[in-house]
Amino acid sequence: MKKVLMVVLLLVGIALAGGGYYMFYLKPSQDAQQEEQEPEPAAKPVQTEPIPVPEPVPEKTDYYVSPEKLGVREAPNYDAFIESVHYRGDKLHVLEKRDGWGRISPYYVYKENGPEVAEWVPMEALLEVPPTITKQQRIETISKYIEGSDDFKQYFDVFIKTTDDLIKEGICIPLDFEELNGWVRSVTYKEEDVYFVYCGGYKQANKIYLNVQTGKIFYR
C-alpha cells in the first residue's frame, strides 16, 4: 500500500512538473513565435480637412468720377487732347489700367495706318464708391452748367430743378447746357416767359422749351 501511495505521489509530481513546464516555458515561447509570425496591422491613415483655396478677388472695373468735371483724353497723359468730359458721380467702366490711367473705351483707328486711340482718364480722379453729394453741392454743380442763362437770377429755382431733372432722366447732358451757357429766352413766345435749350443736337426735335411760370417743358 505504501508503494502504491509513492507511485501516486510520483505521478502527481510529474504532472505538476509538466504543467509548470508548459505554463512557464513552452506556452510563452509559442506565444512569442506566433507574435513574430503575425504582421502588425497597418496604421490607419489620418484624415485631414482639405485646406480651402481662397477664391481670387475680381479686379475692380467700375468707378465713379470724383471731381466736378473730368476731362477724357485720347491718350494716357495730361498733354493729350480732351475729347469729352464726365461729371461728378458719373459711373465709368475701366477696361484697362496703365501707369495710373484707366481706358474707358475700345481702341479706334480714325484713318488708314493711323495710330490707335482711346478714351483715358486719370485713376486718381476716380472713386470705388459713388461720392456723397449733398443737395447744396448738387445745386452748386448745376449752377455752373447754366449760370449764363438769360434771367438766371430771376428764375434760378426753376432753372436748377428743370436742368437737374433733364440730366437725371438722361434727356440732356451737362455739355448741352454748357454749349449755350444755359437757358436762352425764346423770341417766339413773346407773351410768355419761355426759355429753350438744345439736347443731343441742333435740330428742332432737339429743342426743349421751358415755361418758367408753370415749370413745364414742351416741344414744338
Rank of each mutant, 00 (worst) to 15 (best):
L95H: 08
I51E: 15
S143L: 05
K2A: 09
W183V: 00
E169F: 00
K216G: 05
Q204F: 09
T132C: 05
E169T: 12
Y64L: 03
I171R: 11
K27E: 13
E178F: 00
K168Y: 04
Y21E: 08
M1D: 11
V109K: 15
D151L: 05
V184N: 00
Q37D: 10
V85Q: 13
Y195F: 13
M6R: 10
G71F: 04
V65M: 00
P130R: 15
M1K: 07
Y21D: 09
I14Y: 12
V129G: 06
G148Y: 03
E192K: 15
E83G: 10
I217D: 06
A205R: 01
E178S: 05
V46F: 12
A75C: 00
T188G: 12
E119I: 01
V184R: 09
D90K: 11
A125K: 15
S149W: 08
E116D: 09
V7D: 09
T48Q: 14
P67C: 12
T163I: 05
T48A: 14
P58L: 01
G100D: 08
R138F: 00
R98E: 11
T132I: 14
L126F: 03
L70T: 08
P41G: 04
N181H: 08
I82W: 13
K2I: 10
E68A: 12
N77L: 07
E59L: 12
W120M: 03
E128Q: 13
D151R: 02
Q154G: 11
P56A: 07
P106H: 10
R98L: 08
P67V: 11
S29Y: 15
E179S: 11
T163N: 05
G71C: 02
K190Q: 10
E191D: 14
A43Y: 14
V117Q: 09
K91F: 01
E116M: 09
